[in-house]
Each structure stands twice: as C-alpha cells, then as structure tokens.
Nucleic acid binder design. Structure first.
Ligand code: MN
Ligand code: MN
Ligand code: ZN
Ligand code: ZN
Lengths: 147, 147
DNA sequence: ATTTTATTGATATTGATTTTCAATTTCAAT
DNA sequence: ATTGAAATTGAAAATCAATATCAATAAAAT
C-alpha cells in the first residue's frame, strides 16, 4: 500500500508526515490524471481551505523524488504531474482541440528507438515521444462541422 | 535563393526589409545550428552593435511564420530556432553532458508511429521525438573516467 | 511538556518570453 | 529627391510559471 511505502520514505529521509502531505497524497496518488500544480491546488483547497500553493508544489516534487510520481511537460509548457502506478513506461498523444491525453505503449517502437540510438552510438537514458493532433471525438466533430 | 523568397514573402505581407532583418537572415539561414534567441543576439551584436534583443526575437518569429525556420524546445526549456533547409523532417538526440544535438531520421519509426495513432483513431498533425543521454564522445569519456 | 528541526503559507524573486511605445526607418507615391 | 503613411526598432516594462525566502507553526523525539 502506497501510504506505508511513503511513510517509510519520509522516515528514511528525516522528513515529516504532515496533514497537508497526507491529504495531497490521498487525493493524488490513486488518480489517473496529469495534474498541473494549479489544478491540484484548486482541488486541494476544497478539502483544506488554508493550504498553500507552495505546499502542493513542494509535495509534488517530493513525490517525484520518492518515485511515486512523474513530471511531464507537453507543448503547452506547463509542468504536469502524474501518479506512477506500476513501473509502466508509456508515451502520450495529446488532442490539440480538447486537451485529452491518451496514453500508449508500443514495444516495437521502443525497440526501434534503441536501434536508431545504437546506430549513432548514442546511449539513451530517457526519451520523449508525443503525438499532437485530434482525438477521435474531436476529429468526428470537425468532419460534421465541415458539411 | 533564400533572399529572394524572403523578399517576396515580405512584400506579399506588406512587411519591410530592414538592415536588421537582412543581416539576421544572412547570418542565420545558412547555418546548421539550433539557436536560442540569446545566442543569435550575441552573434548579431558583433555585426550590428546597436541591434536589440527584441528585434532578433521578432525576426526569428517572422522566419518561422514565413516557413524558413522551425521552433524547437528541448528539455532545458529554452526555445531554439533552426533554419529549415529542405522539407526534411527530422528528430533529435540530445547529449545531457555536452549539449550536442544529433539529428536523425527514420522512415520505419515514422511508419510505426502512424500505425500506433491509427490504432487509437488519433489524427496526428505533428509529433515530438527526442532522445536524451550520452553522445559517443561523452560516453567514452565517462568509461575512461571510471577506471 | 520541552526541545529540536522540518514544514507551512504568504510573499518576493527569478528568468525566459512577450508586449509596449516613442523615435526612427522604410518605401511607394509624388 | 521629398514626402508621408505605416511598419519597425530598441529600451524598458509586463507577463507568467517556477522557485526561493523567511517568520510562524507543527511534528516527533526526548
Ligand atoms: Mn501519462
Ligand atoms: Mn534540428
Ligand atoms: Zn479531442
Ligand atoms: Zn556529449
């Protein structure tokens, strides 16, 4: 269970489990969303009216450092955080109309990527692969609109 | 020849060919680099000491709008501009040690990407593919250092 | 309960990008 | 060559997300 793992991490680092952290973690970690700090801050305020933006910001950084979240930055150039569920690597397609983020994973693509890197004697530590365009719904809407 | 194409573009849009634009274009368009505004500004100052940062910035935007340059933004989160030579699409590997940027193109990868998109009924307009890691030189240096 | 030290939240700062605006330059029409 | 309307310039200011600061507060070890 995530809560215990996190407590262990905090203890190990000499950090403290505050109400703010506890609540943020409860709210964030089971979701399957890509939060901006602002978005999570707005949601947290409903549960803890006094909570500060900086606390949400720092807690997300903490979760990344602890390995419970990933930091992402898409084309709109705001940092987003997503809870890390398993050790699943995945990439993203982002709809430029509605903002929907679709996750995907493709082994063949990963293998091909490694091949390209090897060809250039490049040692990949991480990669970024994002598609931008229209999701199914938005594309359908566009087609109808054109008629 | 690029100069004439650009003059045509300016005329068509009711824009003017200033000394600043002329010099920036001469300096920038034949290079094969990924410039930040700051970098190009520093180089331009040597040729036109009075030139302003904003002018370099605006001229790069203009070149993008005219289709003579591409805007890129890698992990270091500064906007870079590269002259567009042909209609070549390419992606990048970036060395996190020395900053070297290696360009590559892989048809098989592109095809695979389109397949993945189709599977999700996603209509790709553009994509971003970047590798981060060590270039050959830096990796070799690292290996030697470890001994 | 006391003490130590991490944490919080309000606010200030940073740094890249973008905008503003008065002065200047371009260029088409005299 | 001169003019004048309109685009452009450069300095400075505004923007905006991300990050740092710091006095007040809260956690947890003793
Ligand atoms: Mn994701
Ligand atoms: Mn390039
Ligand atoms: Zn959509
Ligand atoms: Zn390198």
């Amino acid at each position: 269970m995530k809560e215990q793992e996190l407590k262990d991490y905090l203890k190990e680092k000499g950090l403290r489990l505050t109400h703010q952290r506890e609540n943020i973690i409860k709210h964030f970690c089971d979701k399957n969303k890509h939060y901006t700090v602002e978005e999570l801050y707005e949601e947290m305020k409903k549960e803890m009216p006094g909570i500060g933006f900086a606390t949400v910001y720092r807690t997300l950084q903490l979760l990344v450092a602890a390995g419970f979240a990933l930091e992402r930055r898409f084309k709109d150039d705001v940092t987003r955080f997503e809870p890390l569920h398993k050790n699943d690597h995945h990439d993203h397609m982002i709809c430029i109309e509605c903002g929907r983020i679709i996750e995907f994973e493709n082994k063949k693509l990963e293998r091909l990527k490694d091949g390209v890197a090897k060809k250039h004697n490049f040692c990949i530590l991480l990669h970024k692969l994002e598609f931008y365009g229209y999701c199914e719904k938005c594309r359908n809407k566009k087609i109808k609109g054109k008629k």
